[in-house]
Amino acid sequence: MKVAIAGAGAVGRSIARELIENSHEVLLLERDIDHIDETAVPGATWVYADACELENLERAHLETFDVVVAATGDDKANLVVSLLAKTEFAVDRVVARINDPRNEWLFGEDWGVDVAVSTPRILASLVEEAVSVGDLVRLMTFRQGQANLVEMTLPDNTALAGRPVGKLELPRDAALVAILRGGRVIVPQADDPVEGGDELVFIVEHGGEEPLRKAIIVA
């Protein structure tokens, strides 16, 4: 897979290293000469250019890439990169970094964003997840806000204890995708029972979190 990353700061470099380790082809676009350091991400192709400028993206042949990641520290720049990638180069998947949670509402289909990642929101969600039992915690949003990844930790005395996954009465637009139990990650099968203390990870349609929470709590 070919991935172009706009922004070679700490975040962009970290993403690039992970992708290269997984055998993907990575291009880093950076407008700050002080951030250009080819030894920092061996194996990446570096381009000194402003990714908000159309001609620079044309020279990089952005239309040949499978994914564009807008990873700068400036939300305005990330939106511009996302819009250009989607509308001018028809990139199939655009992932954008949100620096200020107040701008989250902008990062959607209108600006060419397929997946928006808010670091502050993720950190806050992880804090909530660590201390919340019996509440749904949103971890991530997919596909222009059409679906969310959410987590719920079951109370130790849950009435669901021992009930098979196939017998859970979930809303139509919610799916249980993983059970975290102790140090294990369980891909749930219909006959697998849930237990008190389990962390249940769901994908649920936007707006379906409250029906899901009620279904689990009432059960």
Rank of each mutant, 00 (worst) to 15 (best):
L106C: 03
G134A: 12
V194I: 10
V3F: 12
K86Q: 08
I203Q: 07
G108F: 08
S23Y: 13
M140R: 15
G166V: 09
V117A: 12
D110Q: 14
S118F: 01
V117T: 13
L123I: 14
E25R: 13
L62D: 03
V81T: 03
V68G: 05
A77Y: 06
G208P: 06
F89W: 05
L57F: 07
T87C: 00
G108P: 08
E129K: 13
T64E: 15
P188Y: 09
I186M: 04
E205L: 07
L180S: 10
V95R: 01
P120N: 07
W46E: 06
V194T: 04
A49W: 01
E128A: 15
Q146G: 12
M140F: 15
A130Y: 12
G112L: 07
T39S: 15
R97H: 12
V150M: 02
D110C: 00
V11N: 11
V67S: 04
T158H: 08
R97C: 02
F107W: 02
A85I: 11
L136M: 10
G108N: 13
E55W: 04
V69R: 07
T153F: 05
A190P: 05
A178I: 08
L139A: 09
K86C: 09
F107V: 03
K76W: 06
A51F: 02
E151I: 14
V204L: 01
V177W: 02
A219T: 00
V91Q: 08
L79R: 02
L106G: 02
A190T: 15
